[in-house]
Structure formats: structure tokens, C-alpha cells
Design a protein around this nucleic acid. Structure first.
Lengths: 325, 325
DNA sequence: GAGCATTACTAATTCGCATTAGTAAACTCC
DNA sequence: GGAGTTTACTAATGCGAATTAGTAATGCTC
């Protein structure tokens, strides 16, 4: 259609408003230390609105030395409703501070995160999985001013989730636990750390280590896995996530076993279908609640103020008790 | 940690390699029409590697007049495994062409898509939901050279999904259909178009219009909805998605009804838990297959070649028959 | 009513890269 | 052996906004 013609520039706005480009910049950025009379400000704003002017990001960040792009690196897993709500909240909170959030589905075969970071000229990179030292380093070299998601905080949070599951079923009087690993990617960081949390909780209570078995998304195979747990007298299974937990439930159903009577089952994630599983699934909801706002604040702080206090807790695991445990 | 020091620039590389900045640019961009001897090329490449040089995107796109950022606008729904695979594939295919993909969870309260487009200086915007004329216009003004996802193609694809569901159960001999709307957002474009597809298929076969009812994610309420369908002698239910379908299954289970004997149930999406529902859920898998590569090609084409043929079909709906229908 | 500060601006410079317009040397070719 | 071409580069310019360094006009003070 309409040839993209020429983009509107700040010079166009200046011309329209009858001022210099400098003044336009001052008005639009609320540059402090500059006094602009109300009338002039109004004229500039009006002209900008009229022309639907949007500063060209590349010019802006070239001149300013930093962009206002925040890159959120997501793990390669499907994005739950929960997580996507968190992302939107984060985006909204960042937008209020003039920052723009874009996301990147990592773990893919696309370009590396540092490459991407450079490609979009991101000032901030947030990871939901922790970055190792080397990646952090590379991100900084790639132009990231702030990198969040390093450190052991993510690790701690993942473990807390496992712990919460275990504590719950132990509280129910179960003493022999199983752990349901996902059918795939079971060596992944997230999986191992959640399992770790369960292991720790068992140790704390003087119980034997949980029996961790992979559970494929398939009723027949799940049934076989359940058999193994039954042989080991397992009376509660903590699952890596709700999907896996539902597979366990299906396997049990196939064997005529009931949750929680025979084996208590608890998942993670509070996916919608957990409410209509048979029986309804107890789970740990990873509630991002205020996390978006908190994170946005942390980002903004560490972007202008030198160092902000590290973000404590992003997710806030919460027990959702239904019928399966 | 390490103060971000100063970013490495192409001038640094030039100095290191003992050539001019111009030459560095020529080598790194494989500028055609320039002959660079192998030895010089090697020196430059080596210097760039040594310094871990990455061109600053803002400077690049300011000078070149266009960035290599592609923005994918996603609907505000959770991202299925299927979709995320598609995204990764698209990202990989774009990366091969020197383009970087970032995603944006739309429908949020963050900034508007045109604003975001300008903020990341995207050259291309792809939408999985169609953009209206106005938005497309705004995106172009915001600097997007290419905008994909306009037009009625998305509409057609959504309808095809509904059609496929309906055709399947009609093929099973069912003549009175129900449609399970999601408990929320049931007036949304996607929902309505899928339903439309079912309505059309019914009409084509001379059947009565499907009885569309919202199904909340809650076994009790789902049971009540099932009652309504039973009263209307419905023998097959097409659901907006797998989650909703599973709620229907739960409601039926509560009433002692079996799928497909009493009512056939079919979902959309092929979510993992559909494999372990009771009974395993028949569904329409929205298979993106080669779509990533095709789309990437279309993007690249229309970015340098003037106009590329519009992308035909992005998703390729495919029936996955399990037990529920 | 001279000196100084404040107001309300603007001209000129800068960011880092791509690109255009050279230029000097080597290499044809009749 | 001089004109023309190709090779192998480099100097200079421009992209569009932010920023720095002004400047002219007005206000305030003693």
C-alpha cells in the first residue's frame, strides 16, 4: 500500500511547532534543568500528536548511549497462563517507566542470547533461569547494562517449590515419597532443582530419599511407572509439574487406584485443567502476584541508581489444595 | 561487577586489524561490489573475534535505515508447546537470514503495538492475530517496513479448525452438536471464528446450529452444562480448546456419562494432558510444521524484493484421533 | 543603571555504523 | 608507454535524536 514514505522526525515536529529540534527534544523528554513555558510545551506536544511522531529508537539510543528495551529470556517451555500474566504485568510496569519489554524464547536454535541482546540493543536482560558467569559476562559485553536472573535466587525459588510439595504430603502423614520427573528434559536445571527441594525436605524429616521416575505423557506407560512406586510402597508422589501429575493420575486410574487414598499426588503450576482432572489436582501455584511490579522497580532502580538491592523473590509458591493430596 | 567499560566499536576493530573503519564494515557485511583480499579479510575477522565485537544495533539501523529486528505479536493466551516450537523454528529460520526475532505478548496493558514497534525499531511485525487496517497503518508509521498477519487469512484458518472438528464428529454419525465456549473471553475473535467454522459445517450438512454454551473450568459447573446438552439431545461437543474439552469430559464423568458413547468430545490444540485425560482426548492439532521456514522466507523476500506473495497458510490443522471422539 | 542571574530558547556536536566518493598503486592492452 | 581498468583500500558524510555550549532578552538586586 502506501509506500512507507519518510518517517516523521523531530525536525519535522520542530518545523511544525515553530521551534528548534533541540526544544522538541527538551519538551518530549522533560529534560531537567530546562525551563519551557507552558505555551511552547503545548505547541510542541500538539505538533507531535498531529504528526503522530515517534522518536526513532535507534537514533535515540545511539545518542543517549542506552536504549529502553528490556529483554526477557524465557525458558523453552510452554508459557503457562500464570507466567503470561506475569509477563504482561511486568510489561505494564516497565511501560510506566518508559521501558519496553520484549521476550525471547530461549533454548532454541536461533541466535545466542548475547547476540540477540546486541541485535535489539537491549539495556536490560532478565532471565527466568539463572545465567552462568560466562553468559552474564557476554551479555555485558553485548551492551546489557543490567542483567537480572544471575545468582542463586532462582535456584532457591525452585527448591522452595519442591519443598512445599513435600512438606504438604509429609504433613498428610505420608512417609515414602515418589518424584515424577517429566518424560523429557528431566536433567534440566529446573527439574533437578525442584527435585532437590523434595530431597531436602525428606532428609529434614528423616525420611528416605524420594524415588524419582520419569513419567511419559501416556496412560499405559504412566501405569507401569505407578506399578514401580506401588512396589516400593510409595504413598505420595510429587510431580515436576501439573502435566506430569495428571499423567500419574491417569496411570493410577488405569490400575484402579485412587488419589489421595492410595497415593497422594501433587503437581506444580496450577494449570487450568488441574481443576477438572479426576480427581481435581492439588498443586503448588507459582504465583507471580506483585512480582511484575517489584521486578520493574528493581530494573528501573539499577538502571539509573547504581546498584539496587537484588530482587528477593520473584515467584511466590503457594499451596492449592484440591482433592488429590 | 566490571563497570560496563566502553563498548567495542568498529573503529577498535579497525585499529586492531590495522585497516580503516570502512574496511571493517565492508568485510563484516560482505558488501558486494567490494573486493577484499583474503589476507585482509582474515585479519579483520580475527580482530573482531578477538575483541568480541558486535556492531551496535542502533548505529547500524540508524545508518542503514532499517533494523533487522522482527517483532512477533502473540495473542495474550498461554503459549502451547506447539506454538513455542513454531516460534523457535521461525526464530532459527530468521536468524539464518540475519534477522532477529523477539516476541510480544499482546492484548496486555503494556504499550500499544505501534509504540512497541517503534521502541524496538522493528522492521517487520508479524501478528498471529490479524491486524485491522488502522493498526497496520499505525505500524507502518511506527517504522515497520513489512506487516504480516493482516487480511482474512487468519480468519480462514480459525474457521478451518472448527470445520475440521465438526466434520469429524459428523462423520461419526452425530447429528446434534454442542459447542463448548471457554468460560472466559468467549466473545473473542478467535473463539467466535472457530465456532463459526462449526456452524458452517453444520449448515453444509443440513444439521441444526450447534448449541454453544460456556464451560467454566470447574467440574460442578461443567456437569450442569453437560445436563443442558443432554436435554437437547446433543451427541457430540466441539470445544474451543483442549482445556475446555477436558472440562466437558470432567462434567460428563460426574454424571456418569462416557465419551464417545454418550457424547463425543473433541478439542483443539493437542495439549500434553489430553493424552492422559479420561478418556484420552481427540483433538485438532494446530501443526505449524514448516510454517516457520515459510514465514521467514516471506519476511526476507518482502524485505528486500518489493512484494512477496502473501503467505497462504501458517497453521495446518490436523485431526488427532484418540478415544473421546 | 551596572552587574549578574534567570528564562527561553538555538547552533553545533556527538553517538557508531553504512555508504559514497574518492585515491594511489598495480595491472592490462593496443 | 600512456590510457584505461581493476584492486585495495581510505576520508568524509549522513542517519536522527540527545546533549553541550552558547546567546539574546528579561528580571532582580544594591
Amino acid at each position: 500500500m502506501s509506500r512507507p514514505s519518510r518517517r516523521v522526525t523531530s525536525a519535522d515536529v520542530a518545523r511544525q511547532a515553530g521551534v528548534s529540534q533541540t526544544t522538541v527534544s527538551f519538551v518530549l523528554n522533560d529534560t531537567r534543568g530546562q525551563t519551557i513555558p507552558e505555551e511552547t510545551r503545548r505547541r510542541v506536544l500538539e505538533a507531535a500528536r498531529l504528526l503522530d511522531y515517534r522518536p526513532r529508537a535507534s537514533a535515540r539510543s545511539l545518542a543517549a548511549g542506552r536504549s529502553d528495551v528490556v529483554l526477557l529470556a524465557l525458558p523453552g517451555v510452554p508459557i503457562s497462563a500464570n507466567l503470561s500474566r506475569f509477563i504482561e504485568e511486568l510489561a505494564a510496569a516497565l511501560a510506566e517507566r518508559g521501558l519496553s519489554l520484549v521476550t525471547h524464547l530461549a533454548e532454541g536454535h536461533g541466535r545466542s542470547l548475547p547476540d540477540l541482546c546486541a541485535a535489539v540493543d537491549a539495556s536490560v536482560v532478565i532471565g527466568l533461569v539463572p545465567f552462568d558467569e560466562e553468559t552474564t559476562e557476554a551479555l555485558h559485553r553485548a551492551g546489557a547494562l543490567v542483567v537480572l536472573g544471575t545468582g542463586d535466587q532462582a535456584r532457591a525459588e525452585l527448591r522452595a517449590i519442591g519443598r512445599l510439595q513435600a512438606e504438604h504430603v509429609i504433613g498428610l502423614g505420608r512417609e515414602r515419597l515418589g518424584y515424577a520427573l517429566p518424560g523429557e528434559h528431566s536433567t534440566q536445571f529446573r527439574v533437578q532443582e525442584r527435585l532437590r527441594g523434595v530431597v531436602e525436605a525428606c532428609a529434614d524429616h528423616g525420611l528416605a530419599e524420594p524415588i524419582a521416575l520419569p513419567v511419559p505423557m501416556d496412560t499405559i506407560h504412566a501405569g507401569a511407572t505407578v506399578d514401580e512406586w506401588v512396589r516400593a510402597s510409595v504413598t505420595a508422589v510429587c510431580a515436576y509439574n501439573d502435566e506430569t501429575a495428571m499423567a500419574v493420575l491417569a496411570g493410577m486410574n488405569l490400575r484402579g487406584l485412587r488419589a489421595p487414598d492410595d497415593i497422594a499426588v501433587i503437581g506444580v503450576g496450577d494449570v487450568a485443567t488441574g481443576q477438572v482432572s479426576i480427581p481435581p489436582l492439588s498443586t503448588v501455584s507459582v504465583d507471580f502476584g506483585e512480582a511484575g511490579k517489584v521486578l520493574a522497580q528493581a530494573v528501573a532502580d539499577s538502571l539509573d541508581g547504581q546498584d539496587a538491592p537484588p530482587v528477593q523473590s520473584v515467584s511466590r509458591p503457594r499451596l492449592v489444595q484440591r482433592e488429590s493430596a
